[in-house]
Design a protein around this nucleic acid. Sequence first.
DNA 1: AGTGCGACCCGAACGC
DNA 2: TGCGTTCGGGTCGCAC
Length: 275
Amino acid sequence: MPEIAEVETVRNTLKKRILNKKIKEVKVFYEPMIESNIIDFKNNLLGQSFIDIKRVGKWLIFETENYYLLSHLRMEGKYFIKPTNEIKAKHEHVIFTFDDDTTLRYCDTRKFGRMNLILKSELANTKCIKKQGLEPNDKNLTTTYLLNKFKTKKTPIKTVLLDQTIISGLGNIYANEVLFYAKINPLTPACNLTTSDCKKIIEGANYIIKEAIKMGGTTIRSYTSSLGVTGRFQQNLKVHKRENELCFNCNTPINNIKIGGRSTYYCPNCQKEKQ
DNA sequence: AGTGCGACCCGAACGC
DNA sequence: TGCGTTCGGGTCGCAC
């Protein structure tokens, strides 16, 4: 599942391979994937080139002269670069053909990813961009910032960690892992967290993302056909998907509960509820 | 305003 | 074995 580190890897890889090539064809095989008008989507990209690729949160932003193409990989989205004549694979939903006989193909088994073409001037007003909070490695992400965001929230910290407007880039798996690292019970109301808790959340988010980059880095070198990265990091998970397996720290069986409809894994001993 | 939940998908894992 | 059912990921949009 691509999370922020993997999206960054995709961005860097694509930047080396597709910039400044003229787009001579745009084919969309699954139209609901395109949130903006599909005719405009094709027409406004034809004849243009991607001149840069940026990223905000988990959104990739392909820049052309007048437009930004926003692309979210959700869980399983991947980009491939293939020769023009290669037959379309089953889950390739959008194919951009460049004038050098290469194609950029968006592939997504779940069809969950989304694309949106907007005028550059609209970027700051686009909902998905406006919503993004601070990334884990942002120096402005401090305990003060978190305490301030958390103080009014009675909802469980697990749910709050998934709120991209506060910390940008943590998904369900990472939220579970961060709370294990910080030894915080996922049901704890966010407003009850202390400075020390917040410090550990920031530390944990950075640690876990750094580990994921390490694993992702290893994976991508051996997986040359795809520009997406899929997780060897799974091998490193401490609680996620480990229901009834023993905690690596204390041998207590890991619990699995639903919080806000999302499966939540934690060690009931290491992550005790307060008082 | 903030909060909660269903919808969107389909492959994998599971139950019978 | 094969068929049917359930689940899970991130985000949006709608209902309170």
